[in-house]
């Protein structure tokens, strides 16, 4: 009986190994030449993600720029307190919100949801001045050794709330 259990566990083990190797090879193939459709879909993509960090870079910096309206004047809102993480992680989080990785029905809906959340949060946040409205833009900067966010080279207004 024990031998039988052992042999069953070995068969299961080998099945795991072979399935794992197939998926890893597919993930590797996808990183070399984009497969379409991707066999085994999300499973392969998950393994591909472990094989493909840092494939590229950008010559521009990008991120959100928020402003609050107070008595007819727009003032910049410092977003740093809302992102208590390293700069790189913050930038990635902003980009994924901008690009709607959260799968809202559209990018516009995603931007509005984010802006409304920020508007409510900023109104509650200690030290945040009461704002009548919030507008959210996506800004590109030319990065420089002095700072990640320097002079804007392009700015696109995304949404004004409420």
């Amino acid at each position: 009986m024990y031998d039988r259990i052992v042999s069953v566990s070995r068969i299961v083990g080998h099945a795991i190994v072979i399935a794992y190797l197939v998926i890893v090879l597919l993930g590797a193939a996808h990183s070399v030449r984009r497969l379409s459709p991707v066999p085994f879909g999300r499973v392969t993509i998950f393994f591909y993600g472990m094989l493909a960090p840092y494939q590229g870079y950008s010559e521009t910096s990008e991120g959100f720029f928020a402003e609050g309206l107070i008595q007819g004047t727009w003032y910049p809102i410092d977003l740093a307190p809302y992102y208590p993480v390293l700069a790189g992680e913050r930038s990635m989080r902003e980009w994924h919100t901008y690009a709607n990785w959260a799968q809202f029905p559209s990018e516009e809906v995603a931007h509005r949801a984010f802006a409304l959340r920020l508007f409510n949060l900023h109104s509650l946040h200690k030290g945040g001045r009461e704002i009548e409205s919030l507008r959210l833009s996506w800004v590109q900067w030319k990065p420089a050794p002095e700072a990640f966010r320097t002079t804007p080279i392009q700015s696109r207004l995304l949404v004004t709330v409420p």
Binding site: G27, A28, S31, V32, L51, A52, P53, Y54, Q55, G56, Y57, S58, E59, S61, E62, A87, G88, S91, M92, P143, A144, P145, F148
Partner: peptide, 29 residues
């Protein structure tokens, strides 16, 4: 292995720009 090998033909890894811009980009400390 895959991370290393793919860099030999990834277009953005063919020169030093990738590290230069990374150092002043979003991840740069």
């Amino acid at each position: 292995a895959v991370v290393g090998i793919q860099k030999w033909w990834l277009p953005l890894w063919q020169g030093g720009d990738v590290l230069y811009y990374s150092f002043i980009g979003r991840w740069g400390t």
